[in-house]
Design a protein around this nucleic acid. Sequence first.
DNA 1: ACCATATGAGACACTTATGTCGCAAATGAT
DNA 2: ATCATTTGCGACATAAGTGTCTCATATGGT
Lengths: 185, 185
Amino acid sequence: MAMNREEIVAAAIQRLNRVPTSSMAELAEAVGVSRATLHRHFSTREELLTELANRSLDSWEQAIEAAGVAAATASGDAEQIRRTLEDLLSRHLVYAEEHGFALSEHVMVVDPHLERRIDELEEREIELFAAGQRAGVIRADLPARWVSSVVYGLLVAARQSILRGDVARRDLPRIVIETLYRGIS
Amino acid sequence: MAMNREEIVAAAIQRLNRVPTSSMAELAEAVGVSRATLHRHFSTREELLTELANRSLDSWEQAIEAAGVAAATASGDAEQIRRTLEDLLSRHLVYAEEHGFALSEHVMVVDPHLERRIDELEEREIELFAAGQRAGVIRADLPARWVSSVVYGLLVAARQSILRGDVARRDLPRIVIETLYRGIS
DNA sequence: ACCATATGAGACACTTATGTCGCAAATGAT
DNA sequence: ATCATTTGCGACATAAGTGTCTCATATGGT
């Protein structure tokens, strides 16, 4: 087969999305490769998981940049912030589907470097939320960090809804954004 | 020491709330009991986890009943539904703190009986949400099951906020209810 | 003080996951 | 066709978790 690192990572992510506690043997089978070969590419399980986590954070970071979070935060313009927020949310939904396993704790490795990266990415979003509050896009009586947690919680909810078939994939962005902005009343 | 089942369960729950993947040895140590004694009370790990899960669902069920979900659903009265919703939410927050480990998937046992119980409890809440929609308390353009997922997601967010110290415990109920009803704008 | 019961400590067998190694077979480029 | 590289397969050692058992000790009620 001659799988390269990319293909292995992609297949492993898919598997972990369905069965987050998969062993190396299960991952190897899911990838379509022998256990020995998997170990040839990733000498330890931790190395594999760290790589997956970093890929996952790459996607997240890319979403933040593609949505123009930094520019919107700096601009302070209400409309730009609103557009960026919705764009970011939509990208997050894709992220939640593709890297959802990383959303559940206790699965990923506890690596100081990873934790710092997560904090840094989250901080960039929190700054956007804070800018949104100053611009009147987001109510100011909620801590910006709480807003961040709410977005995270909604992603968990969205992922669950998709997995259970409660909401159609194409309806999700609208429903999530509607719920985030206006709540359920 | 002469620990009874109750004390063991309580200590185990506390431990699992912090370290959801604890082994039997770790749980025994956390309980303050030898591994053998733990096995005398719960012959297998699965038995222990099933018991914990059922205790957890007992709490959940009790919250549903104490909040008067059934009565509110049957009444169809907007004000009663609103009060019940807020009451239920507050109780859920306590539940999320005490049984949060059960909120994360992949930790608990996959037991058909447990799954049925969860479905049944969730269904009772969904009926309340649907009644809320008919009474105009909850917007009707969202699937009631989505509302249920959102509540779940907000609990995950609330738990995370508490653990990280982003929001004070006493502010949580108001913030969560505010966010649920009105969103972030 | 006595006795039934509960506990702790340790040993044991069993299972599962991890990581390494050697070797034969397949692959692929030249 | 040849040769270097990659792969699969199986064996192996190691580690960790689970569940059982025995025996000495501690506890608590009478």
